[in-house]
């Protein structure tokens, strides 16, 4: 197997994404005394280009799906699909992140479990935590949230569908205000204003 460089991977995937390509960048990061580098490819694409790009990626090397990360940016929700290719080859692994941005008015994304079944856990989690509909997901039940968790509340959203303040219970503060701490010295009384 000929190993592609990060730039070559970015180019190949850009071609696969076609019109759905938005931006790409390659980064490196070195640690340790010998300065060996780990390499990352970040691709921003549209939702429609996700499956073709991923199929092309799987042709290069069967990707290890790490997780689908997320970020609520206000009007949109970003989904970052983190894949690793070239696993099993010492120090050659490359992180390929496919980012898609979904408008909050249309939070739908295709399932990638047809290509990588191992992504199911992460997709189920995105549904319940972010309110995203994963189209054609083979198992759409809740995963982590309790059964009596209210519908329409999505813990990872930062808008009005996020966790409402009345669901938040600050355990650390419970009972503090009722303490009678008598040995706290009183605040210095300010001098009464003269004249």
């Amino acid at each position: 197997m000929k190993l592609l460089t990060p730039q070559e991977i970015a180019d190949t995937l850009q071609a696969a994404a076609g019109a759905g390509f938005i931006s790409a960048r390659c980064t490196e990061w070195a640690e340790g005394a010998k300065g060996r580098k780990s390499r990352q490819v970040w691709l921003h694409i549209t939702r429609e280009a996700l499956l073709p790009t991923l199929r092309r990626l799987a042709d290069i090397h069967y990707p290890h799906v790490s997780v689908i990360a997320h970020a609520d940016t206000g009007a949109q929700v970003d989904l970052m699909y983190h894949f690793y290719i070239y696993w099993g080859i010492p120090r050659e692994e490359i992180l390929v992140t496919l980012t898609i941005s979904l408008d909050k008015s249309d939070l739908r994304t295709p399932t990638i479990t047809g290509i990588i079944p191992g992504a199911l856990t992460s997709e189920r989690e995105k549904q319940e935590m972010l309110g995203i509909e994963v189209v054609d997901i083979p198992d759409g039940r809740r995963l982590f949230l309790p059964e009596d968790f209210p519908e329409g509340v999505y813990p990872w959203r930062k808008d009005e569908t996020g966790i409402p303040p009345d669901m938040v219970k600050e355990l650390w503060a419970t009972g503090r205000d009722s303490l009678q701490l008598d040995d706290t010295p009183p605040a210095p009384t300010p001098e009464p204003p003269t004249a």
Partner: peptide, 19 residues
Amino acid sequence: IKKDVRVDHPYAGYADLDI
């Protein structure tokens, strides 16, 4: 399956070792 972050992905002190 040969997956091990310490080998695949050079980081921390592991980057200098042969694992």
